[in-house]
Write a protein that binds this DNA or RNA. Structure first.
Lengths: 225, 225
DNA sequence: GGCTAATTGTAAATTAGCCGACATTTTCCT
DNA sequence: AGGAAAATGTCGGCTAATTTACAATTAGCC
């Protein structure tokens, strides 16, 4: 992989903004690079050395399989997100894989040990990273708090609001979302059955709260959600 | 507050183990100290400077109040836990308070800015802290994963197992838990109604899976839970 | 000791939403 | 183009669990 490309990939991420040009140049910690297209499944082979991944392009979902063989969506990773063992602790016993949601994705990865060394040498970066992880935790807490003691409808509304805020293209009160999720995906994220999600979405559609199709979701007035 | 006490309070915590005696001595970042007794409510005044808290003794619960005035238990903090804005980002808009569960507690606190400076000066500490936060995140993820798509009974069982593992006094397969929670607390933690929790606990009692009273919970055989 | 508030016990009514079963539509692949 | 697979739409029965409502017990306090 070209040095220049590596440079840009890191430079681009807000986490590395605190570093100077020469510092980034020196890193060269990116050791892996991968492209994949829609529907592909990427396994994080547990036998391998622990890695941290950086999604450069596209969307993927992290899926876990529990003992009963049920799939659970653990995370939706978007462009620019770091993922993998953010805790800097490898634990090998979890059965997880990633599935590509968007047309194609680009993922680069670096070794956890390299990243740790880097953090040790750059206290400012370490602090940014700490805040980064903390922020992620807060988001998880919030989204889970949302799941609990609220009914499916409220959860769907909240999910749509969050999604709109994060990725929606806003025009006045109108929001357009690039819909790379199936209704089944949405159902899993808000922890309900596929049928209930379908029902609620259709209900919203008849109430003119949104218009749904497989390509995009249009919310005419986000303030009504 | 005496320097010696401060020293021991920090030295005691696994997070600060990486620091030398003299380093800890130099810190003196503890700026607040508080004792409180059962039932007391501690507010984290949002007008105040952002702080990080360290629970030295006892148990407290963090309670959030949502828009409808419903109480939700956000966290149970145990002896030795750090809490507060672990994200190192202050956000002022959340209505949270802490309630003392055990007979009495001791809490010390330090300023977030002081702590940040400390992390900048000690990259190793920063790394430990990140792992610490990461671990907490992992625990939260797991406990929430447990809440979802499992029924109330399974959730109660899992909660008891976790509790037993964390704080139970084990003697063979028998576990004794110091019960500082009410059934209503337990219900909130496992996200069910108080009545359902009561019912399930009584059901377990009649099946000889545990014996419950307000002081302690005895689980004769943890392997059966 | 006795009063009050908090906690725990119990039961019936009601409901959200899961599940199974199927039809229909859309997308994808060769 | 055409067939298969995936995604979406729809329905009714079923069940866990919430809600409402009240009784009984225990703890805390003066």
């Amino acid at each position: 992989m070209y040095e220049d490309l590596k440079y840009w990939y890191l430079r681009d991420h807000k986490l590395f903004r605190t570093l100077s040009y020469s510092q980034i140049k020196q890193l060269c910690i990116i050791t892996g690079f991968k492209k994949a297209s829609k529907g592909e499944i990427i396994y994080f082979s547990t036998s391998d050395v622990p890695r941290i991944f950086l999604l450069k392009k596209g969307n993927i979902k992290i899926v876990a399989i529990d003992d009963d063989g049920n799939e659970t969506i653990k995370d939706i990773i978007q462009k620019g997100d770091l993922f993998g063992e953010l805790t800097l602790e490898s634990d090998n016993k979890n059965e997880e894989y990633a599935k590509v949601l968007s047309d194609d994705v680009a993922i680069c990865s670096f070794l956890m040990s390299d990243f740790e060394d880097l953090l040790l040498r750059n206290p400012t970066l370490a602090l940014s990273y700490t805040k980064f992880v903390g922020l992620k935790m807060k988001r998880i807490k919030n989204s889970y708090a949302n799941l609990i003691s609220k009914d499916a409808k409220t959860r769907l509304y909240q999910f749509l609001k969050d999604w709109a805020e994060k990725e929606g293209i806003q025009n006045g009160n109108t929001i357009v979302l690039d819909n790379y999720l199936t209704q089944s995906d949405i159902a899993q994220i808000i922890c309900t059955s596929r049928q209930t999600a379908t029902q609620l979405l259709n209900e919203m559609e008849s109430n003119n709260l949104l218009s749904y199709n497989r390509k995009e979701i249009v919310i005419p007035d986000i303030t009504k959600i």
